[in-house]
Structures are given as structure tokens and as C-alpha cells.
Design a protein around this nucleic acid. Structure first.
Lengths: 143, 143
DNA sequence: GCGAAATCGTTGCGATTGCAATGACAATAT
DNA sequence: ATATTGTCATTGCAATCGCAACGATTTCGC
């Protein structure tokens, strides 16, 4: 039997993820013109308070350079404050401004609404799906 | 309660997909130096015979330009043959050369092995996962 | 304490990407 | 038949991305 791309899990996962990301990006594009890296940085800052670029890099699966640039843009937009870390002067401390917090409250609601819709679409298999994602993501394949 | 990125389905899906794609790309990079678009074009040609750029575009979730460029590179590598369509001269007919078929036989095996490993990692939730992907992918959200 | 190695954020740069425009051809309407 | 509209693949271009320096700092080894 010949190989069939449509049955190939990595491919299907990739297509699904791209479609979902696109749908969600359309939602928050109406609210604020953010790129995906910007959205991720904002969202991470929202629940983790003050952190460094490296912290976000490790948690959020984004290249350092993207985070750095996203943070600069967000600062220019008045959503994020960048400042030097007290003890270690190599580090940059990132945190939301009050304006950034206000925006994230709205975006957080939008995100949760979207997820609710999504879970409804997915239906009863949602918990299994969630378990799979946990297993795939935490499986750090050291080489 | 504050929004948490780690619990957000689109984000987790995106991270999982990127990681899996990366793992798989490492596998076939050893076998042949292919980019992801090249791999997809090859894989699609493998099971669908002779088709046009547009056909692949519709089936494989890739921009026309990427397919066009991938096809050119694959032709230069001797894996794909490009020729004008008989009846409609706007179309370009793409098909694997015998060399391309030979390569895809090896790659198909690699892909299937990888998928088998992946399914083992996923475990009993695999069927549910598969159903979810079906539902997400086929849900073409017309706007 | 001092030099070497590691870490952090930024920047440069080549490669990749997605979108829009183009040119070639086909289908449709009049 | 001709003109208009639509479709197809390619190309150009701007934006994005990821990797690899790089300077600034800190940590480690001795």
C-alpha cells in the first residue's frame, strides 16, 4: 500500500493547528492588531507578572529574537514596560503596563470564548485530545 | 481568574504541531535534504499520480507560490517531472520521476515508522485524537 | 582575585513565507 | 468572432523567521 499524506498524523496536526491559529488570529485582529508572537508575549506576561526574555523563551516556544522584537514593539505601543533587572544587569524585566492589563482582560475573554466554541466543536473527545497534547508537549526529546 | 496560555488549546496545538514537525523533519533530513513544502508535494504526488499545482494547493494547505517553487527545486533534483497539460495549456502537470518514486518508497516507510512510534507515545487516546483532527480540519469555516 | 567560560538580550542577515501583481491561456457572454 | 471575465502558474516584493554572531554582564575554575 502506498503512503497517504491525509492519514499522516504530523501533517494533520500541522494543518489543524494552522487553521485554528488563523481563526483565532482573526478574532483578536479585530480587537488589536497583534502578531502571534506579540499575543503570546502579552498572554504570558499577563499571568506571570515580571519576567525576563529568557523566561518567556523557555515557556512559550518562541525564538529569543522574536520575543525581543515583539517586546520592543509592545513597549512602543505602551502595552509593556521594559526595565533592567536589579540584581543581574544582563536581564531585562518585562511587565504589562496598566494599559496592557486592560487589553489582556478583553483578549483573555475573547480567547476563552473562542476556546469554549472550539471545545463544543470537538465534543466528547476533548478530554482525550487534551491528554494527548499534554503528552506530546511534555515529551521533551533529548538528543 | 486570569487567562493562562498553557491551558489555551490553539496555543498547545500549535506547539505540539511544531514539535512533531520538527522531529519528523529531522528523520527525513538524514535521508534527503527536503524542506517541508517539498516533502508535502512529493508525498502528495506519490499517491495521486499526475496533478496540477492547483490540485496540490487545494489538497495540501500550501500557498501556490510555495508549491511552484518546491516543484521547480524538485525538478532540478530530478525527482519530479513538469510538463504542460495537454488540453488546458495553463496547467502544469506534475508527476514523480522513477527516481522520485524510489525516494518516496523509502520516505513512506520512514513516515509510517514515525507515525507508529507517535501512536505508541499517544497511547489509548489515539483514536479520539484522530477524530478530533478530522472534525477540526474538515470544518471549513466559510466567511 | 583574575582569567575563562557561560548566559543574556539585541542585532544582522540569509532563507522562507504569504500576498499581490503579472502574463498566459480558457470560458463565457453578447 | 470579439471582448470581458475568470483561472492558472510564476514572479516580485515586503514581512517574518530562525540562526548565528556580537557586546555586555555574570559565574565558574583555579
Amino acid at each position: 500500500m502506498t503512503f497517504h499524506l491525509d492519514d499522516f498524523l504530523p501533517y494533520r496536526l500541522s494543518v489543524a493547528a494552522a487553521q485554528i491559529s488563523r481563526r483565532f488570529a482573526a478574532r483578536y485582529a479585530e480587537e488589536a492588531g497583534l502578531t502571534i508572537p506579540e499575543w503570546r508575549v502579552l498572554a504570558h506576561l499577563n499571568h506571570s507578572g515580571t519576567v525576563s526574555v529568557r523566561d518567556i523563551h523557555n515557556r512559550v516556544n518562541l525564538d529569543k529574537s522574536m520575543i525581543s522584537r515583539a517586546a520592543t514593539r509592545l513597549q512602543e505601543a505602551g502595552l509593556v514596560r521594559k526595565s533592567g533587572h536589579e540584581a543581574d544587569r544582563r536581564l531585562v524585566s518585562l511587565e504589562l503596563t496598566s494599559q496592557g492589563k486592560t487589553l489582556m482582560q478583553r483578549l483573555g475573554r475573547i480567547a476563552e470564548d473562542f476556546q469554549t466554541e472550539l471545545l463544543a466543536e470537538i465534543g466528547e473527545d476533548a478530554p482525550a485530545m487534551s491528554r494527548v497534547l499534554d503528552r506530546l508537549i511534555t515529551t521533551q526529546h533529548m538528543e
